[in-house]
Design a protein around this nucleic acid. Sequence first.
DNA 1: CTGAGTTTTTATACACGTATAGAAAGTAGC
DNA 2: GCTACTTTCTATACGTGTATAAAAACTCAG
Lengths: 212, 212
Amino acid sequence: MPTRTGRPPKISRAEIVAAALRVIEEDGVGALTMRRLAREVGSTAMAIYHHVRDKEELLLLLLDDYAAGIPRPELPEEPRERVVAAAMAMHEAVSGCPWVVDVLRADDLMSVGALWYPERIVDAAVRAGLTTEEAVDVYRIIWHYTMGEIGGRAVARRRREEERSTYRERVFAELDAEEFPRLSEVAGRWEELTARDTYAKGVRALVKGLLP
Amino acid sequence: MPTRTGRPPKISRAEIVAAALRVIEEDGVGALTMRRLAREVGSTAMAIYHHVRDKEELLLLLLDDYAAGIPRPELPEEPRERVVAAAMAMHEAVSGCPWVVDVLRADDLMSVGALWYPERIVDAAVRAGLTTEEAVDVYRIIWHYTMGEIGGRAVARRRREEERSTYRERVFAELDAEEFPRLSEVAGRWEELTARDTYAKGVRALVKGLLP
DNA sequence: CTGAGTTTTTATACACGTATAGAAAGTAGC
DNA sequence: GCTACTTTCTATACGTGTATAAAAACTCAG
C-alpha cells in the first residue's frame, strides 16, 4: 500500500538541488544561502531541512549531480600512466566546483556519482602489482594531495575576490635574510613561482614513488 | 617624540592572544568566539577588531605563537632524508593545532614563526641538485600534500566530535558491486584501512619521485 | 464525523563573524 | 580653558546556518 500519510510535501529534494544549481550559475556559490534557496523554491529556509540534512549535504548533492555529468576520459592501459590520467581527471572534475572541497576533505570517497575515479585508481594500482591494501593507500595519498592542491587554490581565489590580501606579504616583509637565505632569495619571485600549476608534477612523483 | 595621541588602549594584541590560548586550552577551539574572547579580556567583541584584522589573523597569531615554541629537530645530512625529516617535522607541528588548516590552506608559507620548515626543505632540495625553481616546486607539492592530509583528519575529527556521521556509509550502501568491484571488495574494511597513518609513505614517495 | 497519528511547513530564536556609526578619552596648539 | 585631531572602544545591526516548537495538512480507525 503506497499511500503516503501526513502532510503532502510542497517541495522536493530534486527541486531544491535544481534551484541551488540555478542560483550558483546565476550569482555564484557565494549567493547560495539557505534563505535565498528557500525564496527560490517558494518556501522557508527551515522547510529545506526536511529534505536535506544540512548545507554540507546539499553541496554534496550538487557535486553528485555535477560529477555524474562529466564525461569519463579514455584511460591508457599502462598501469602507471593509468593512475596518473585518472588522478588528473579527478583533479579536473573537482576543480570544476572547488567550493565542495570544504565538504569533501574528510570524505575520501567523494560522492556516489564520483566513485568512478577511486575505482579506476585502485584498480590500476592493483594491476601494477600492489596488494589491495597498498592500492588503497595509493589512492588516499593521491586524494590528500589533490584536496590540498585544490583547497589551496580555492582559498586563494576566495581571498582575491574579497580583496583580502594574503598574509604572505607580511611574512616576506619581516623576513630575515640571514636566517632564511633560500626564502629571501625567492621572495620577490614567490608570486610568480607559485602561480604555476604543479599538480601533474606531484602526481607523477607520487606514482613514481609508490608503484613498483 | 614617542608621545602617543588618542584614547589610550585598554587591551593589547598580546593580551588577546594570551586569552585566546587560554580559552582554547580550557574549552577547546570550538569555544573560541569573538564574544567569548572579549568577555575574557574584559572588553567588547568589536574592540578586538582594532588589534586584529579578523578571526583568521587571530588564528594565525596563535599558530605563530605555537610554532615558535616547538623545538626544531636535528636533521640528517643526506638531502633526501633531510627533506623527509623536515616535512615530517612540519606535519607534526601543524598537527598540533589542526584548526589552523582552514586559515593556512592558501598561505603556502605558514606564519612568520614557522618559516624554519620551508627554508630547510627548499635548502635541502637545492643541495640535492635541483634549481631554486624546482626546489620551490618541491616544497609546494609537499605543502599541498601536507595540508590535504591534515585537513582531512581535522574535518573527520570535527565530525566525530559533533557525532555527525560521514556520508561514507551512504556511499557504501548504494555501492554497485558490478560497477565498482575494487571498492566493494574493500567496503567492509574501509574504516580500518583508512585509519592508518600514511603521511610518511606519501612524503617518501614524493621525495623519491621529485629528487634526482 | 471525530480523534489520533504522521509528515511537512512555518515562526521564532540563538550564536556566530563582522560592518557601521558614533561616543569616549587622550594629546597638541591656541 | 577651549577647540581640533587622533585613537580606541561601545552600541547597534545585518546576514548567516540551524535548533526548537508549534501549526497545518493529510490518512486512517472507529
